[in-house]
Amino acid sequence: MTLIFAHRGAAGTHPENTMAAFIEAEKAGADGIELDVQLTKDGEVVVIHDETVDRTTDGSGWVKDITYRELRRLNAAAMWDGKHGHCPIPHLEEVLAWLSSTRMAVNIELKNSLIAYETLEQKTISLVRRYGLEKRTILSSFNHHSMRLCRTLAPEIETALLYIEPLYAPWTYVRAMNADGVHPHYRTVTAEFAAEARRRGVAVRPFTVNKRNVMKTMFAYGVDAVFTDYPRQAKQWKEKTP
């Protein structure tokens, strides 16, 4: 059965990567949430997608150059015309503390391809362990070196490799990386690919699936999960799928 992960929370209807978006995802009945982590200037693990705060907040600058205290003053709902009030950028600990009281899983994407945040892996894993969420967590990244390090540091936590272009012989690569799954762009996923992944015990979770026809196709392929900005809508489509 295909699970539904709310991409950056319910990012289609709420400010992405905020507690408001995550809480809405739970209310919508999502099986899990997906979020992105980076490090502040003073080394705190914060939940934000872009390497700068410009697109999603009323501030500007690189996350790596801003202290946690300064970052918390920014409004991550600034682009929503006051609809959601003031939403601070969450600390990963805040999200995990809340998540531990739910039944949902979490996919934590380490945003360390452009900036090689030192100790991001160690700090993220430490917080996951602090809340006993090892079995409900998937770590993923486009930085596959980082995923290999995570597997070494925390073999008990699932890892998945993000990619956009089709991979040749992905199973050989996944095995070499000692990973558990792949998170491909949905356009690269075929029925044959999904079937072969199942046969080889490799989880497949395509991103970012927002259109009804694509969602129905992914359900038909039997992928392990989809990442979507609209978990409420996805759940309705799933329930109507024969």
Rank of each mutant, 00 (worst) to 15 (best):
A77V: 05
C87L: 00
D81W: 10
E70Y: 08
A20C: 08
Q38G: 11
G29A: 10
H84C: 09
L74R: 02
E24P: 03
A21L: 03
S60D: 14
D50I: 13
H49L: 05
I66V: 11
E34H: 01
Y68M: 07
T67L: 04
E24A: 14
I89H: 00
M79P: 12
C87I: 00
F22T: 01
H84R: 05
W80E: 09
E34P: 10
E44F: 09
M19I: 02
T40L: 10
D31C: 10
D50V: 11
I23D: 01
N17P: 11
L74G: 08
A76W: 04
T52I: 13
H91T: 07
M79I: 15
A20I: 01
L39V: 01
Q38N: 12
A30M: 07
E34L: 02
L71C: 09
V37K: 01
T56I: 14
I89W: 00
V63I: 14
D54E: 14
E51W: 14
R69M: 14
H84E: 09
L71E: 12
H84W: 15
I89A: 00
G32F: 00
T40F: 00
D36R: 03
R72V: 04
D58T: 08
T57A: 12
N75M: 03
A20Q: 05
E70I: 07
G85A: 06
G32W: 00
I48N: 04
P88D: 02
D54Q: 14
G82R: 05
V47H: 09
D36L: 04
L74T: 01
H49F: 05
Y68I: 02
R55Y: 12
A78H: 15
A25V: 02
M19R: 03
A25E: 05
K83Q: 14
T57G: 10
V46L: 11
E51D: 15
Y68G: 04
A21G: 11
T52F: 02
I66G: 02
A20P: 08
V53M: 06
R55V: 13
E26L: 12
R55S: 10
E94L: 05
I66F: 07
M19W: 11
R69E: 15
I89D: 01
E94V: 01
L35N: 03
A28T: 04
D54S: 12
R55C: 13
L39P: 01
H49Q: 10
L71Y: 06
E94P: 07
E44S: 14
I23V: 14
T67W: 11
V37L: 02
V47Q: 03
A28I: 12
G82Q: 08
A21M: 07
T18I: 06
E94A: 03
I23T: 03
D58N: 15
R73M: 13
E34Q: 03
E70Q: 15
H84K: 04
T18A: 12
T56K: 02
P88Q: 01
L71H: 06
Y68W: 14
L35P: 05
T40G: 07
T18S: 08
I89M: 02
V45E: 09
S60Y: 13
